[in-house]
């Protein structure tokens, strides 16, 4: 069979809606795109633990303390599941777990813009759960139909857990929204701070060449803009219903165009943050990850030492 024939058969399977498995033949481009996407997803889950980590020790009641610990644990767990998927994909390229983690602090892998931002107050911890995880669910739910089987299966579990996170965040938000004037002010400030990041989260409206290839291989099935519109559909009414103001005077639903019109986030600013890791908290959090990994090397080595047991 020639390379061309193999590729034809592969694309035939994709078009039929079959799932590709880790042990199946796949074109290099497909493998590379998957590694890029899932590695970024895994690392975003892991780096996403840091903004909330800052609020885990400060959760203001026993119930909240237990909930936020479990929530952030889930994020690390998602990172682990996704890394296992990438490990299988990257194995033929000679990369292992150690490399995939080191890539973070060698700036060889990006993570979502929202996790470069500060988590300044307890309300931010709530907004992260409610809207950042809410945005993530929209993105991840759309990936459930991905052509790569192992990713689809892991996403199924992730989506189920993320919907709990969204409820956890919503619960914190509702308590603040119905609380004292101070709590309400804290909440509005938090929304003001996060709004632009949330719009950026889905990426630029134009379909980039890499995104175009992902759509071609059915790794993903919706464009950035379609996902952002879904997010606005779901959350704008909810945000307004609890008495918050969305910090965008342009925001409205255009009935004729059947889409939300919004002020564009500063693509350049957030693009730089993600590409160059120069957001307000990027360096500090990457440093924590480096310390955890490098500082824990002696433990990993010790646990692999053959012993008398």
């Amino acid at each position: 069979m020639t390379e061309q024939e193999r590729l034809e058969l592969f694309m035939e399977r994709i078009r039929r809606g079959e799932k590709i498995e880790a042990t199946d033949w796949m074109p290099d481009e497909y493998r590379q795109l998957l590694i890029k996407l899932i590695h970024m997803h895994a690392v975003s889950e892991i780096m996403g633990a840091y903004p909330e980590k800052e609020w885990v020790p400060k959760a203001p009641s026993l119930r909240r303390k237990l909930a936020i610990m479990a929530k952030v644990q889930d994020e690390m767990g998602h990172g682990q599941l996704l890394l296992r998927v990438v490990e299988d994909l990257a194995k033929p390229l000679g990369k292992n777990r150690e490399d995939l983690i080191e890539d973070i602090y060698h700036h060889r892998v990006k993570f979502h813009n929202v996790f470069h931002m500060e988590a300044r107050t307890w309300a931010d911890a709530g907004v992260i759960g409610w809207l950042v995880d809410g945005a993530a669910i929209i993105n991840q739910a759309s990936l459930l139909s991905t052509s790569y089987g192992p990713y689809a299966r892991v996403l199924k579990r992730i989506c189920a857990e993320e919907s709990f996170h969204m409820q956890h965040g919503e619960n914190i938000i509702l308590a603040l929204a119905m609380g004292t004037p101070e709590q309400k002010r804290m909440l509005q400030e938090s929304l003001d701070y996060w709004w632009e990041s949330l719009l950026f989260f889905f990426g630029p409206p134009e379909v980039t060449p890499a995104a175009e290839r992902m759509l071609y291989y059915r790794i993903r099935t919706l464009t950035n803009e379609e996902l952002r519109q879904k997010f606005l559909d779901k959350y704008v009414p909810r945000i307004l219903s609890i008495g918050l103001t969305i910090p965008d005077p342009q925001l409205h639903y255009d009935k004729e165009l059947k889409r939300w019109i919004y002020t564009m986030p500063d693509w350049e600013k957030f693009g730089e943050i993600v590409k160059k890791n120069n957001g307000p908290k990027s360096r500090e959090r990457i440093e924590l990850r480096r310390q955890a990994h490098e500082g824990g090397r002696w433990v990993r080595e010790a646990m692999l030492t053959k012993t008398a047991v």
């Binding site: 633990a49 303390k65 644990q73 690390m76 682990q80 955890a292 500082g295 433990v299």
Partner: peptide, 19 residues
């Protein structure tokens, strides 16, 4: 224990310590 979150020697250890 919860302060180890995100800082354990490996991701699996992190999840376990949180439990």
């Amino acid at each position: 224990d919860s302060e180890w979150l995100g800082l354990s020697p490996d991701i699996e250890g992190d999840v376990a310590f949180s439990s």
